[in-house]
Design a protein around this nucleic acid. Structure first.
Lengths: 160, 160
DNA sequence: GGTCTGAGTTCGACGTACGAACTGAGGGGC
DNA sequence: GCCCCTCAGTTCGTACGTCGAACTCAGACC
């Protein structure tokens, strides 16, 4: 075929880009602000003005993102009422939203390692034990897997 | 304080948004195209035209993203040469880039579960054993941790 | 010299995100 | 009753990012 210097020369993805779940997830929540809003919800910030203040996001964009997150079922509104105040809406994650936590943890761990020099500004702990929580790649047999040991395989059909 | 219906009413993040590693990572690779380019590199697609064809990205944006990924040390260029052709550059992930794999896997697993109804178009396998690879949240003692059992704690300093 | 290919660059049109200011609904003070 | 407050969300003009298409450039082959 070809092997001019010593390069493996993979020319095309083994996977149809349209069939990859990454594409779909990015289409749903793959913009900067959506991810940051999700982070706020994970941190327990639930109110419009608090999120807007924390993130410095424009109000129009925040309105749009919250509506979108609710629309796709990642967040939901829930009424609340301060003592001398009318009923308002706050935002909380759904189970579907909580399942995005590994993505956020992945972003956090990478930033901790390469941007904060291994000195994490925030740590994740298990509520009861207080033990630190980390993200791990494991095979079905339970063994840790290094990232470079991983290969991809298309399950439906090859492209081209 | 306040507890009108039965709402916990967390008003502000326990974490300074500026000090969170998620913010930094998103600033580095947090746009849609960067993530998709990274996915291509993970899949082993290394050449400009191949990536451009797979993703349907405009050439100018791809040029910009590849340069950015190289600049921040996530990808690197590597010369290659087809038999009767001049030397050209291809792109490969660095170790720093490979460490972003958990983020991609997180995106993929969420899409598999909620967008593909648990029927994943692509599976990840360990190269040697062929066993399927999955992302897990575990505490330091090695126990699996459910996402809703996780709490965040700021390590440096609380905000206000 | 002419042509082919891969890897970009340039350019004008269009779309989306932005901040700032405005609206709207209900509660409280006086 | 009237004014003012807060929270939530909308409107609006501007600015920036993305797009496709066409162009450039370098080397190899004929």
């Amino acid at each position: 075929m070809s092997q001019p210097s010593q390069v493996p020369t993979t020319r095309r993805a083994a996977v149809d880009p349209k069939e990859c779940s990454i594409t779909g997830t990015l289409a749903a929540i793959g913009d900067r602000w959506s991810v940051l809003v999700l982070r706020e919800l994970f941190y327990g910030v639930r109110r419009f003005n608090d999120i807007q203040h924390d993130l410095g996001i424009s109000r129009s964009v925040l309105t749009d993102r919250l509506a979108r997150l609710v629309e796709i079922g990642v967040a939901r509104t829930e009424p609340y009422q301060e003592p001398g105040d009318r009923v308002r809406q706050q935002y909380r994650l759904t189970r579907k939203g909580v399942r995005l936590l590994p993505v956020l943890v992945g972003l956090m761990e990478w930033g901790d390692e390469f941007l904060s020099n291994g000195d994490p500004p925030v740590v994740l702990e298990e509520r009861d034990s207080g033990e630190q929580v980390r993200l791990e790649l494991r095979s079905t047999s339970g063994a840790l897997v290094a990232p470079h040991q991983i290969v991809t395989r298309a399950r439906r059909r090859r492209v081209d």
